[in-house]
Design a protein around this nucleic acid. Structure first.
Lengths: 404, 404
DNA sequence: ATCTTAACTCAAAAGATTTGAATTAAGTAT
DNA sequence: ATACTTAATTCAAATCTTTTGAGTTAAGAT
């Protein structure tokens, strides 16, 4: 009868070392060339400890020496830089109709990718396919693969929401279960995350949110998801369902939603909503596949010709989104809100330009250095790339581990 | 030129021990009697390590032996329980007009308290007064005082919001600065937190949110604040301003707010709003002091006689609050949402009973064990008690320390 | 009465960081 | 040119903490 749900583990020398290794590697990654002594000063570790860890990281090819700095007095430090080519990471995004896979180096450069239709989305089928694809990917690269990030659409275990949505997987029990099964199938460490959060980690590691410690990420998939990174760590919620922003009610008695409420944000500001808007005006065939990029292509063309229907949709989407972004600012106090996902860059830029952000917000700081809203990376592989980024994040960012 | 804003510290043997000590103490606190071997199993530590730490904690009087368990085979374990009387914690809540102080034992039992009018709310005056009060408090108790929790109203450093609100302190630079100055004045470790978050920690340690790892806490002060505990840790945001829920817009083109927007939740659902509502109907003198409990007393009386004006206010407050709670559920995925603070219990209970919570929410789980909304502790000292709870939380809950 | 299981304790071993002295290297002043 | 200062790095011994393994104690089961 343990008193906690979340077991908190004790720590020991090995864990201490793993933590310090991440501290050193994380510092090197974010710097462009750092000497041992500088790392020691910043981390509070002794120079000797840093020296040992650097030696180990150099042996593992995760850092490489990059000449000596000159200037100032004293012995010039040997600079070390992060070596993106020293290892690779796998990312898988499972959608109801397809499995998207990438292999990247530690800088997020794609080494290999695949998009595979899914005949069925039950775990057995998917894991078998993933194992096969992982084999192909590993044959392509000569460096060690650190692990795999598995990206699943949420929410999990919710009455109503999960029964109705169009983007739902059946037979998947939850994060922990999926991670264990996937690790077994791939013979690799596996991290499971929902799409918006994985994309947010990707953005933090490799994209527009680099250097941000606390930010919100709005992910335009079929619906609209929210990933929150708070103090460098993804916010998961009690059941892994944090960030279900698509079902925030923005129009009282508005359009009906799968979730049973009316006027959900997702019904107005999402690719699904855009598709419906364009289809209703005859600008898009109603039987366009939901997952495909055809909506994007049409939208991009309409944007170029300043189409009135698209213009109206963008205005409405921006009008409803702006106060929600203000709410996010006031609730999470982020350094910025990032918009990204499966819409064309130009469309997101245009949407951002139309946002009339509320004045009453904790985001209005005198010392503010960057815009309140940023555009992140976009494209179809964003989720899978986020999966790979999870693995990189895990090897680079220190954190307190829960008990195994 | 360190690459991170938030320095991430390395760890060492001493920190390892401090962490493990917290793990053991935290486990004992949440259990009602635990043997060494049980603790070792749950924490992953060896029995010898646990034995050493228990010996140390017993020496410090933080745990006490409580007989042996019988049943099963093998030697019956010596059970240890948390000893609330083994130490004490101070809590201070600074308001523009008053300083509220408490000394509690580790179970949150009040050993001493004081409410002191503030002639001025500049840091020097407040710290001098705090030092004096801390001296009085420490004279009252024979056990060691572990530290002090300093509770301040937010937000900090925001244009517009901070210039306008009625509950603002001037001359206070920020959390870190205040913590250092207070530690200097009190000669004690000091933790600084904003009111809603401190109250939330208090609720988690000692109140309605016991055992909850992830929850939202709505704090009815003069305005309305939100404290979020995610995975056992308070969510602070990038600038310590997370949880400014009072300025979420719930009525388009509604009542004007100090923040510059219109229709903010705080203008409808807060003690300030209640006071205005009752004053406009002649049920309360318009010059009632804002901080006092007079509004509460009048409201309690009106509630008892089922007054129509109060009934209308409660209906309106509940109507606007329900979707906001739904939003919190969908954004934070908490185990529950707790309502507490400076309103009478019965009023909060009545408000909760009137909530018509949205059906489309990730909170609607088949495995849900408790109500979606709970009532927390209430009363004038809630914030200061939260301050003391911060100290207890800090001694009991393991976490990764940032660099000093 | 003996066996089994479980909790606990003692002492030595192992892992990691820290400490302090020595070494190397480059700039700066004499 | 030479000596001094500053800073990074390395080496070896010391320190802190957990782990390991053997041994002890205690209660139920056979």
């Amino acid at each position: 009868m343990p008193p906690r749900q979340t077991q908190i583990a004790g720590t020991n020398a090995e864990r201490t070392k793993a933590h310090n290794r991440r501290v050193v590697l994380g510092y090197v990654q974010l710097s462009d060339g750092a000497g041992r002594a500088e790392i020691a000063r910043s981390s509070g570790l002794s120079t000797q400890t840093v020296s040992n860890l650097i030696a180990e990281l150099e042996h593992d090819r995760l850092v490489v020496p990059a000449g000596r700095r000159r200037s100032a007095r004293g012995q010039p430090p040997v600079l070390y830089t992060f070596n993106p080519a020293g290892a690779a990471a796998l990312g898988f995004e499972v959608r109801p109709d397809a499995l998207l896979s990438v292999l990247t180096d530690l800088a997020g450069t794609v080494l290999w990718q695949a998009q595979t239709p899914l005949p069925a989305s039950d775990p057995e089928t998917v894991f078998a396919l993933m194992a096969d694809l992982a084999g192909q990917a590993r044959a392509q690269c000569e460096v060690p693969v650190l692990g795999a990030g598995l990206v699943l659409p949420g929410p999990f275990g919710v009455e109503g929401l999960s029964a109705a949505g169009a983007t739902v997987l059946t037979g998947w029990q939850g994060f922990d279960d999926a991670a264990a099964q996937a690790a077994e199938a791939l013979k690799l460490p596996v991290i499971v995350e929902k799409d918006a959060t994985a994309a947010a980690i990707g953005e933090a590691m490799l994209g527009a949110a680099q250097g941000l410690d606390t930010f919100c990420y709005l992910y335009f998939g079929a619906g609209l998801g929210l990933g929150v990174i708070a103090q460098g760590q993804p916010m998961r919620g009690a059941f892994g369902n944090a960030g279900e922003i698509g079902h925030v009610i923005v129009v009282p008695d508005g359009l009906p939603c799968d979730c049973g409420n009316t006027g959900c944000l997702e019904q107005y500001t999402s690719r699904m909503a855009l598709r419906r808007h364009l289809a209703a005006r005859g600008l898009l065939s109603p039987d366009t596949p939901p997952g495909g990029g055809q909506t994007d292509a049409v939208a991009a063309r309409l944007l170029a010709v300043e189409d009135a229907a698209l213009d109206a949709w963008l205005n409405e989407a921006a009008r409803l989104l702006a106060p929600v972004i203000g709410t996010l600012e006031n609730l999470f106090d982020p350094e910025a809100v990032v918009l990204g996902g499966a819409l064309p860059d130009r469309l997101l830029d245009d949407l951002i330009a139309r946002l009339d952000l509320p004045r009453g917000s904790v985001a209005r700081r005198r010392d503010r250095a960057r815009p309140r809203v940023l555009r992140g990376a976009s494209g179809r592989m964003t989720g899978a790339l986020g999966g790979a980024a999870l693995v990189i994040h895990d090897t680079v960012t220190p954190r307190l581990d829960p008990a195994p």
